[in-house]
């Protein structure tokens, strides 16, 4: 049993491949998380514009990309864009798909955060001469982010997990590399190693999230 699922020799042999996958997963996360946060922030700021010419297209955009399965979106980009004359490669396709998908999720979280800040906060700022944008940046956003920190972290956790979708379009991230190693060694051990790495990487974040959620609950009491 141990020989099959946790073979030490195979771990040693597959380690360099799995490690390069881990590095790519970290790199991918470091790209798609800030990209998603940035996209989400833009969407949330646009959502505070009252004009129906902004509001309706924005709502359609967010709904569409939240309803669209990210795996389907990714494959569509990867398989479809070359026909439009755009050869972007797997990495770029993952970045774009995540920007569209997780940006919409982050956007809704930021929007909820912004709406949780009482209107009186903005009025106090505006009454001292701050512009709309200054009031947003110095008064509303810091409070908004603090109010939705658990949700932001929770979504970030999902995003990091979803980077494994990159394996479908041959991005050599952790899961993809583990599968490569598995097919080279005819042994499932590399997949087990990848699973353990995913767990070790995300578990501290999950702990942190629980603590934040408990604190938020305590604060509400």
């Amino acid at each position: 049993m141990i020989q099959t699922f946790f073979n030490v020799e195979i771990i040693a042999a597959a380690w360099p491949i799995v490690l390069s996958g881990l590095l790519n997963t970290v790199l991918l996360s470091l790209i798609v998380v800030p990209l998603g946060l940035f996209g989400g922030l833009i969407l949330a700021l646009l959502a505070s514009v009252k004009s129906p010419w902004v509001r309706w297209p924005l709502m359609a955009w967010v709904d569409f990309f939240r309803a669209f399965p990210p795996l389907v979106l990714l494959i569509l980009l990867f398989a479809g864009l070359p026909f439009a004359g755009l050869e972007l490669g797997g990495f770029a396709c993952v970045a774009i798909a995540f920007f569209l998908n997780t940006g919409s999720y982050y956007g809704e979280i930021f929007r909820a955060g912004i709406e949780s800040v009482p209107q009186g906060q903005v009025e106090a700022g505006r009454s001292t001469g701050l512009s709309r944008l200054q009031a947003m940046g110095y008064i509303v956003l810091p409070q908004a982010v603090r109010n939705v920190l658990p949700d932001l972290l929770s979504n970030t956790l999902e995003v990091v997990k979803l980077t494994s979708l990159g394996s479908v379009v041959a991005v050599p991230e952790l899961l993809y590399q583990a599968r490569q190693a598995q097919s080279l060694t005819y042994n499932p051990t590399p997949i087990v190693v990848a699973a353990v790495i995913y767990f070790l990487m995300l578990w501290p974040l999950v702990r942190l999230l629980s603590r934040l959620e408990n604190r938020a609950l305590a604060g509400r009491r």
């Binding site: 009482p118 009186g120 906060q121 009025e123 106090a124 810091p142 409070q143 603090r146």
Partner: peptide, 9 residues
């Protein structure tokens, strides 16, 4: 303002 509206952060 009635509710002070100080910036809590």
């Amino acid at each position: 303002f009635q509710s002070f509206n100080l910036y809590p952060h």
